[in-house]
Design a protein around this nucleic acid. Structure first.
Lengths: 139, 139
DNA sequence: GTGGGGTCTGTAGTCGCTACAGGGTCAACA
DNA sequence: TGTTGACCCTGTAGCGACTACAGACCCCAC
C-alpha cells in the first residue's frame, strides 16, 4: 500500500485547485515533493497536513506571509507560543479595522442611495454626490 | 489667463498620485489630454471635474469598471437614473456581504485567540485549531 | 492504438495602483 | 551662460493570491 498522493488527490482532499497547490510550492509554502518516474508530483501524508494547515489559515484570512511564519513556529513545538498569539491578534485587529471602514462606507452609501428619487440623471442625487461642486456633468 | 493644468497640479488638486492619473488615462477613464510643445500633458477644467468624480467614487469603493459605467451614465443627463441606482445598490450589497464575512471571521478569530493559554507551541490552541485532526505538527 | 483524463512547464491575466529606470523640459538663480 | 533641481515623459515590473490558459507529456482502459 502506497500512501503517496497525486496532486489531483491532494487537490480534492483539501478543496484546493491544482494550480494553487503548485503556486504554494513556487511560493515556498510547500516544499518540492518527490516525483514519479513520469515526473508527476508524489505527496506524502505530511504534505496533506501542511496544506490543510495552510488552507485553514487562509480561511481565517491570514496572509501567505503570516502563514509562512506560523508554519515555522508550529515546527518548534517546545517554544513559547507568544509569537503565534501576536500574529493572530494583529490579524484580528486588521479585520476589525476593515469592518469599521466598511461600516462607514455602508452608512455613506446608504445615505446616498436613499436620496435617489429615481428621476433623470440630471436630478440624480447619486451622480450629484459624486460630482464636484461647480455643477454640471463630469465629462 | 490660461486655465490649463499640468499633471502635477491636477495631482495636488485631487489628491491623486501622478502615476495614478496616468494609469486612469491608460485605463480609459480619463481621455488623453492635449500636449504642450514640450510634450507635457495639459488638462482642461473638465478633466479636473472628471477626475474628482472618479476619486469620490473610488472613495466610496466603486470599482473602476463601475465608475466607467457611472461616467457614461452621467454624460446623458436626460436618461433615467435607474441604472445608476442599480449599480450603487449592487455595490452596497457587496459591501454588506463583506461586512458579514468579516464579522464571522472576527468571531472565529476571537474565539481561537481567547483559548490561547500562552504556553508552548505544543499546547497552543491557535496552532491546534489550524492543524488537521490527526494531530502532530503540520510539517 | 486510440481516447480521454490527468499532469507537466511556463506565461499572462486579474485589480488598482505603486515604484522604479533612464531620459527630456523648464524656470530660477549665480 | 551654465547649472541646479523640480517637474515631466515612456515603459516596465512589482504587489497578493491566485486563475487561466497553451502546448506538451503520461497513463490507463477499452
Amino acid at each position: 500500500m502506497n500512501k503517496h498522493l497525486t496532486i489531483g488527490t491532494l487537490s480534492r482532499l483539501t478543496n484546493t485547485k491544482v494550480e494553487t497547490i503548485r503556486f504554494y510550492e513556487k511560493s515556498g509554502l510547500l516544499r518540492e515533493p518527490a516525483r514519479t518516474e513520469g515526473n508527476y508530483r508524489s505527496y506524502a501524508p505530511s504534505d496533506l497536513n501542511r496544506l490543510s494547515f495552510i488552507r485553514r489559515a487562509r480561511d481565517l484570512g491570514f496572509s501567505l506571509d503570516q502563514i509562512r511564519v506560523l508554519l515555522d513556529l508550529a515546527d518548534d513545538r517546545s517554544r513559547s507560543c507568544e509569537a503565534v498569539d501576536e500574529i493572530a491578534k494583529e490579524h484580528l485587529a486588521e479585520v476589525e479595522r476593515k469592518i469599521a471602514d466598511l461600516k462607514a462606507l455602508q452608512g455613506e452609501l446608504g445615505r446616498v442611495i436613499s436620496q435617489c428619487r429615481c428621476g433623470t440623471v440630471a436630478e440624480c442625487r447619486i451622480i450629484e454626490t459624486l460630482s464636484p461642486n461647480f455643477a454640471g456633468a463630469p465629462g
